[in-house]
Simulated scan of single mutants.
Amino acid sequence: MSLSSKQETQSELTGKNKALLVAVTDGSMIPIEEVPDLVFSEKMIGEGFAMIPTSDVVYAPISGKLFQVAGASHAFEIRTDDGLEVLVHVGLDTVTLNGEGFETNLKKGMMIKQGEPLVKFDREYLLSRGCRLFIPVVVINGENENYHYVFKPNNEIQAEAGKTIALTIEGY
């Protein structure tokens, strides 16, 4: 079964939805708890994973509609057809750059497929401005009365963008 056909299917065991988030860039996958920003590491906005990139392109972890694209081009929120909401946040402290160092043509309301490019970033520029190169990927609606997700992170360390399954989400 292909990755895309497995992505958002009914789990035969639970009868509930299952989604697979893929790595958003080439690089190292780390637990969200290791991101040096309390909003992410303390899971204030949700559960997920993070990446330390070795490339300069960030890809969509899942297919859906862009329901938010930050004006600074550093953050993207994707909503799947069945209501899963995922935030991809490129770098820490990058909002202060007001879009400098980022290239994207995406706009709110556009559809995106898993593995398609979200944004290209200038690694050296971000580092020269004091930004930290962590890319948190967070399910932002996984903790409320309507959703009861079960998160199963992949414990591999090295990942390939769009191919390595980073996080399995079940039970919503």
Results as ranks from 00 to 15, higher is better:
Ala70His: 10
Leu66Ser: 04
His89Gly: 04
Gln114Pro: 13
Gln7Val: 15
Gly46Trp: 11
Pro53Arg: 00
Val139Phe: 11
Ala159Gly: 07
Asn146Gly: 06
Lys18Thr: 04
Ile140Leu: 05
Ser28Lys: 15
Thr164Val: 07
Arg123Leu: 06
Ala60Pro: 02
Tyr149Lys: 06
Asp37Pro: 08
Asp56Asn: 15
Phe76Leu: 04
Tyr149Trp: 14
Ala50Val: 03
Pro36Phe: 00
Ile135Leu: 01
Gly71His: 00
Gly162Thr: 06
Phe76Glu: 10
Tyr125Glu: 13
Ala161Pro: 14
Ser55Gly: 10
Tyr147Arg: 14
Asn146Met: 15
Gly27Tyr: 11
Thr96Phe: 00
Leu97Arg: 07
Lys152Trp: 06
Gln158Asp: 13
Phe121Asn: 09
Met110Ser: 14
Glu42Met: 06
Val24Asp: 07
Glu42Asp: 11
Ser73Ala: 06
Asp122Ala: 01
Gly99Asn: 07
Asp82Leu: 15
Met44Thr: 06
Gln158Phe: 13
Asn146Phe: 15
Glu33Ser: 14
Phe151Asp: 04
Val88Leu: 01
Glu47Gly: 09
Leu84Asp: 05
Thr80Trp: 12
Ala161Lys: 12
Gln10Ser: 14
Ile112Thr: 04
Ala75Ser: 10
Asn105Leu: 04
Ala161Gln: 13
Pro53Val: 09
Ile30Cys: 09
Phe134Lys: 03
Lys107Phe: 04
Thr80Gln: 12
Leu127Gln: 11
Thr94Lys: 08
Leu126His: 09
Ile52Met: 15
Glu124Thr: 04
Val69Lys: 03
Thr164Leu: 07
Asn98Ala: 08
Ser128Glu: 13
Met111Phe: 01
Pro36Ser: 03
Leu38Ser: 12
Val57Met: 03
Gly101Trp: 05
Asp81Asn: 14
Ser41Leu: 01
Ser28Pro: 02
Phe40Asn: 01
Glu8Thr: 04
Ala166Val: 07
Leu97Lys: 06
Ala19His: 14
Val86Arg: 00
Pro117Ala: 15
Asn141Ala: 08
Thr164Asp: 05
Asn17Leu: 10
Pro136Arg: 03
Val150His: 12
Ala70Leu: 02
Asp26Gln: 02
Gly48Asn: 04
Val137Tyr: 08
Lys152Cys: 11
Val35Pro: 04
Phe76Arg: 06
Lys65Ala: 00
Ser55Cys: 05
Phe102Ile: 00
Leu3Ser: 02
Phe102Gly: 09
Arg129Trp: 11
Pro117Arg: 05
Ala23Lys: 07
Lys152Glu: 13
Ala75Met: 11
Asp81Thr: 14
Ala159Ser: 14
Gly48Met: 04
Glu143Cys: 13
Leu118Glu: 05
Pro153Ile: 00
Gly91Thr: 01
Glu160Asn: 03
Ile165Arg: 06
Lys108Asn: 14
Pro117Glu: 12
Phe121Gly: 02
